[in-house]
């Protein structure tokens, strides 16, 4: 653990050093643009997206550097409140409590809606269940129904996979599926739910284990998992696809936010402008999310 940490620090230091050394040359060629470095932290759902945005952004603004890390929406927002990151990515809206904590630290977070994400509910590809209603999802994830045979599947226990509590996906799913949109609802994930440290961990476990059901942002869907169709209020069973999320047919989709510490300035402002440019929004779409400007 310690060794791994030391190694990481060494790598980061080496990269920073290399980046620092190469910068002066770039500075001569780039006449326009801002300089400085910013930190972005938060949602694991958005980390690949933000990374792609940051790389494109840095290619056009060689004097600016953007460091992106994941950890979960709550982690990002907490880091912003604690003053250790410039932008927090979050797959849920900031909570009342977090706003209070921010105010106590003299920070007034500014919210930017950067895109939408469909939340896929996934099972093993061999699982015959391919369609579920929202009440059925609620029963599964709260532990009221514990066997696949209730849904015409094999006689096997359902293994519920959830994200850790620091995940915006966890919070969103709990609020919108378990509590049907009521943020004060009291329904909880079944206590035996396995809390996985990342969306990728849920994807891996679902790919290997026939009994599992899990959820994550639709950008993580691959052929190793089967995304279940979810029945919407019109009674249609809808797959989590870009078109269905855009058309608002898919019932479990959520906004993706970035929060800055107060009014953005400098690199932060220039980066946010890039996110909302045609190029930035195109990257949002390429990575499997729904852009806000089309």
């Amino acid at each position: 653990m310690k060794r791994a940490l030391a190694l990481t620090i060494a790598c980061v230091a080496a990269i920073a050093l290399a980046a620092g050394c190469s910068r002066p040359e770039g500075a001569k060629t780039a006449s326009q643009g801002v300089s400085g470095s910013i930190q972005i932290k938060g949602s694991d759902t958005m980390v690949n997206l933000t990374q792609a945005l940051a790389e494109k952004y840095m290619a056009t603004n060689p004097d600016a550097s953007v460091a992106v890390t994941g950890g979960g929406s709550g982690t990002g927002i907490a880091a912003m409140i604690n003053g250790t990151t410039d932008i927090a990515e979050s797959s849920r809206a900031i909570k009342e409590k977090e706003l209070e904590a921010a105010a106590a630290n003299g920070i007034s977070p500014k919210e930017f809606l950067v895109g939408y994400d469909g939340l896929a509910v996934v099972v093993h590809p061999d699982n015959p269940v391919s369609e579920l209603t929202l009440p059925q999802l609620k029963d599964i994830f709260t532990g009221k129904i514990t066997n696949w045979k209730e849904f015409g599947g094999p006689d096997a226990g359902i293994v519920v996979l959830s994200r850790e509590v620091n995940s915006g996906t966890h919070v969103y799913f709990k609020e919108h599926v378990l509590n049907e949109g009521d943020s004060k609802g009291t329904e909880e994930f079944v206590r035996t739910a396995l809390l996985m440290p990342s969306s990728q961990a849920i994807a891996d476990e679902t790919a290997k284990n026939r009994n599992t059901i899990g959820y994550y942002g639709m950008a993580y869907i691959s052929e190793k998992q089967k995304a279940v169709k979810i029945v919407n209020e019109n009674g249609e069973a809808v797959s989590p696809t870009l078109e269905n999320v855009v058309a608002k047919k898919y019932p479990v989709s959520r906004p993706l936010f970035m929060y800055t510490r107060g009014e953005p300035a400098g690199v932060t402002k220039s980066f946010m402008d890039f996110v909302f440019s045609a190029e930035g929004q195109n990257i949002v779409k390429e990575l499997g999310f729904v852009p806000v400007k089309m």
């Binding site: 979960g72 982690t75 509590v165």
Partner: peptide
């Protein structure tokens, strides 16, 4: 043969999410 959550994993998984002093 059942899943468990240890004290160490709890601290590591949740520490990042918390607001200082909460």
């Amino acid at each position: 043969f059942q899943p468990v959550r240890t004290m160490t994993a709890t601290i590591a998984a949740e520490m990042g999410e918390t607001v200082h002093g909460g």
